[in-house]
Amino acid sequence: MEAKASILSRIYHFYLDGFRSMTLGKTLWLIIFIKLFIMFFVLKLFFFKDHLSQNTQNEHEKPAFVLDHLTQ
């Protein structure tokens, strides 16, 4: 158990020290977070809704909805 905790602690400190010692990496991470925010909290929430889920009540209705479209 102690050995397990030690490995987890070493992994934790490996990442912690790595992030702390970053220079250019800090700017890059900032860009990554801004990008992820735009993607998931702007685009996904407001623009990219699941079209089939929006037009059907449940999973069972989806095949019929698609079939109607494909055979129109």
Partner: peptide, 13 residues
């Protein structure tokens, strides 16, 4: 995202 929103019939098919 675009597969699910813009190309939903394709994604299902």
């Amino acid at each position: 995202f675009e597969f699910g929103t813009n190309w939903s019939y394709y994604s299902w098919f």
